[in-house]
Design a protein around this nucleic acid. Structure first.
Lengths: 251, 251
DNA sequence: AGAGTTCTTCCGCTCAGTGGAAGCGCCCTC
DNA sequence: GAGGGCGCTTCCACTGAGCGGAAGAACTCT
């Protein structure tokens, strides 16, 4: 940059983005020093840039003075093309009405599932996923539903890595997982039992448009009520099909 | 900036933010040239900065090559402190369950209402508001509910301006509006009849925490069913009180 | 095929951006 | 209440990153 940058070749923009990137689900509130450390931007520079971002409300400050993502960025984020979410939301609502449980919509991004919408009531079990959140694919219902409809080479690449194991019930053996994915493909839905969180189980159905899984619709409930899952699968599949239809129609 | 800027004193960051600011509810998809024009950044510079933003997925491209807000910004926006929204969502859900209509949560930002959450089903009437959207206060239910609980000087300043008039039913006479606001304060809820959109009417209740309206909860329905509004007001008020309580508890 | 529009590449000039150092303010601990 | 640590803010002299006009490429419409 202009001036005596320690790291020539790094643009101002890249620093601004690095600062924004310092915020993630695990670190939604940071002090200036933390922002500097996490973004790799020198403290002084971070101070100046953060000031400018704050003035624009790209960043905000909590009552304790910590920095967080600002209102303006939230607002901007809402403008992201969300056709899928727009058409899907009423269906999530429908599933919620029929079950009263946590319902969510997820897409694949890279090797993870990205939760794009979530509907939850007062009685539903607390749950790890949140809109904008990410989780690995293999321990989640929506992840399995999505993964099962990816091309072969993708699945092989996914399984070839070291797979995380958030609970003792997580299935990480490539062979067993591959078999399960075939089953998911055959039945049209995926189930999990405490593979992501102890105490919770889930069901999910893919939203298939021209053979491709553009999203997955899932519900999560307490594992005490695991026996109810089969009954809920039909509601899920109907809604997933409805989403697929509306989505294809608006394309 | 470094180099022969036409407009010395303008920081790179301000240009990046101006580019992001070029996107709004009325212009969610833009060509490069439009971005440059709307942001006041020279085309060449916009080209370079947009490229960098795109690589980071702060901006994305639609199938037609137009630019839009990117996935990464949406994700980032979800990290904005949303305690209010988190505690309120189950209550919106409750109201939706009891009514089947569009339910939304709004806060005041400046002289406008900012919609922060929305729940809608398949049967609900299409509606102008959307999460992240803004509307003037006086023609909307949530706006009136919020405005009625602002301090006197604020209301006076609001009414002193030229007020927009989206429909012939919009109330813009300061005297009449002020009287209506007193009524809203007295009854604890606000009603509108086609003041924002022909064919739609609404009811809204403020979320009062220590006498301050931190948000408002509203529903919109077809004006053919306006007679049902009074019945729905109770559900709204209960939910608004529930939100206020949960909100105060987590503070 | 010509005229217009939008996007992309090129390149020499220059000032915006840089970040270490030093100072400030707060909260601990001893 | 002195001392130490930590996080934030201000200062400032040096310099290469950024600038943007011009020219060219790609793509539409006539």
């Amino acid at each position: 940059m202009a001036g005596g940058s320690r790291e020539p070749g790094r643009s101002v923009t890249s620093k601004v983005l690095a600062i924004l990137g310092a915020f993630d689900a695990a670190h939604p509130r940071l002090t200036l020093t933390e922002v500097a450390a996490r973004s790799g931007v020198p403290l002084t520079t971070a101070h100046r840039l953060v000031g400018e971002l704050e003035r624009w409300q790209a960043l905000g400050r909590g009552p304790d003075g910590r920095l967080s993502v600002g209102l303006r960025l939230w607002e901007l984020g809402q403008l992201a093309p969300g056709r899928l979410q727009d058409v899907a939301h009423p269906w999530l609502q429908e599933v919620f009405a029929g079950t009263g449980e946590n319902v969510h919509l997820a897409v694949r991004d890279g090797l993870e599932v990205l939760y794009v919408d979530k509907v939850y009531g007062r009685r539903a079990v607390p749950i790890v996923s949140r809109a904008g959140g990410r989780l690995p694919m293999h321990p989640t219902g929506v992840g399995k539903a999505l993964l099962a409809h990816e091309p072969d080479w993708f699945v092989r690449a996914y399984l070839a890595r070291e797979l995380e194991r958030p609970t003792p019930h997580t299935i990480t053996e490539p062979g067993r997982l591959a078999r399960e994915l075939s089953a998911v493909r055959a039945q049209g839905y995926a189930l999990t039992y405490e593979e992501m969180t102890l105490g919770s189980c889930s069901a999910a159905a893919p939203v298939l448009v021209e053979g491709r899984a553009v999203a997955a619709l899932g519900i999560v409930l307490s594992s005490r009520r695991a026996r109810e899952l089969p009954r809920l699968v039909d509601i899920l599949r109907t809604a997933a099909a409805g989403i697929a239809e509306s989505y294809a129609a608006t394309a």
